[in-house]
Amino acid sequence: MQVSMEINGKAVSIDVEPRMTLADCLRHHLGLTGTHVGCEHGVCGACTVMVDGAAMRSCLMLAVQADKAKVVTVEGLSCDEALSPLQAAFRKHHALQCGFCTPGMLTTAHALLSKEPQADETRVREVLSGNLCRCTGYTALVEAVLEARDAYQGGQEA
């Protein structure tokens, strides 16, 4: 089936099997391999992308369901050749080790802070509790997200 989406600001139109998940479509049809697949049954959060501004698990969504949607992946977070403030905070706090959960953590945190720039530690932990990290102790991740809040106070576009 033909699907048209706007992905990271660019219009794309592709032909996919109905059974293809949005995650597999992004990775294997569009080459956007920043979106990772860790469980394919909606638990680990690695495949989180933003669909029409809201964080969603792209393994729990068919590509055909994203027809006419605006999708933002981790590749769409960096701006002007520089790390976004959120990404920079992750780097500074060493909030990643193997990097496999990182895209999902970033998209989730970005969606959260875009809507709730005041989110406190409890809220950040609650929201990130849908994302599995097997390497870190979560502490640095939470610290990085909290530090990045400043950059969202003006109301950043999701």
């Binding site: 909606g42 959060g45 989180t48 669909v51 809201a54 964080a55 969603m56 698990r57 729990l60 969504m61 989730t108 959260l112 609650e126 929201v127 509790s129 849908g130």
Partner: peptide
């Protein structure tokens, strides 16, 4: 109900 991403969908 569930987690943040699932609550959005």
């Amino acid at each position: 109900v569930a987690h943040y991403q699932i609550r959005n969908r």
